[in-house]
Design a protein around this nucleic acid. Structure first.
Lengths: 197, 197
DNA sequence: CATGATGTCTAGCATTGCTATGATGTCGCT
DNA sequence: AGCGACATCATAGCAATGCTAGACATCATG
């Protein structure tokens, strides 16, 4: 490959990333419904067809943003877990990190977990970063716990529900901390008889 | 008001309901993204502008469908709770009813809890049926529990997460029963020391 | 310098939500 | 009964959307 071709490929890769970043910023600023191919094209200072030479369509751009998010989320959860000296509190730290991620970048979170997608979850073709993020939850439970995966699924589901209901204004965003504390307490402890019912 | 005017108003109310039902059926059959004002108009055998004489726009139709759903959900949860002889198991029954509702009518559920909406939640203007549905969760906990509302919020969030992640193919739909059992067990019991972490 | 390929843009299509305008019938009143 | 006013509805159109075909320019190469 000639040096010129290499430079072109480099520039192309840069532009590829530029599109992803622009879409993400625009979505974060005005919401996904405001991300149109025209606005996006203007933002990257190219015409619309250029977008289609990089991605198969708007959905593919969204998918690329989501994939980027999976990597960042996995890293963040991992950091939260490893930064916790006492393992019993790791779950709490990871859950808090998850909710912070969702609250700080709601549009990114939507692309990852709310908007329709063809990304495979819990499947052979699952993107490694996504699997890695999920595993951070799994690893909060003792390795001799044969139902770790189940625990992780329920924990994740609960957090997702809190994140998404809060973001869409369906539960007041204030109580998140109390809800988180309660959730972790219940998930972590072994239940002993119904006293709250 | 003349008898003729009354008849007209009756017919108008019928048509109003017809539009809501048609939208709901179409969404359930092909998904909300397939519900266009044109298809909807054809389905009710009127032209598009008629839709706008009944609703302020597509969003308003969606809102009407959601409101209908709130009523049905509240009734269903109530029935599940009252049909449970032993109060400690009421929570489990209500939660199962909730997940069944979401799984059986995914499009309706989306209109209620996923798609952007201006319906007020946990607010003075909250539609009574919605508040009633939420109260079914609250009433699963003992009335001397000062944190019932918090418990209900977390329970609902967790169920919502399970429902929505399952519907969008992000967790396998099979394990729902196990997840539900685990969730209810943990929420119901008073935690005694970390054994699972 | 000419040529061909590569890259980019202009212009356009079909579909969307929504609406202005005009046709059609219906109602109330003399 | 007939006429004018009004309500009702459809045709036709607008702007915005995702996407694409074709024209145009640019640039490496013979």
């Amino acid at each position: 490959m000639s040096a010129i071709a290499k430079r072109r490929e480099r520039e192309r890769a840069q532009r590829h990333q530029l599109i992803i970043t622009a879409a993400r910023e625009l979505a974060e600023a005005e919401g996904w419904e405001a991300v149109t191919t025209r606005k996006l094209a203007e933002r990257v200072e190219y015409s619309q067809p250029v977008l289609y030479s990089h991605f198969n369509g708007k959905d593919a751009i969204l998918r690329a943003v989501a994939l980027e998010g999976f990597g960042e989320l996995a890293a963040r959860l991992r950091r939260a877990r490893l930064a916790t000296p006492e393992p019993p509190q790791a779950l709490h730290a990871v859950c808090r990190a998850y909710l912070e991620f969702a609250a700080e970048q709601p549009a990114l979170y939507q692309a990852m977990f709310v908007l329709p997608t063809d990304v495979k979850f819990a499947h052979a073709e699952t993107p490694p970063p996504l699997r890695a993020a999920f595993d951070e939850f799994v690893n909060c439970f003792r390795s001799d716990n044969s139902r770790r995966e189940l625990f992780a699924e329920v924990t994740w589901s609960a957090l997702h529900g809190m994140a998404v209901l809060s973001d869409s204004g369906r539960i007041p965003p204030n109580g998140q901390t109390e809800r988180l504390d309660f959730l972790v307490t219940q998930i972590a402890g072994t239940p002993s008889g119904p006293a709250t019912l």
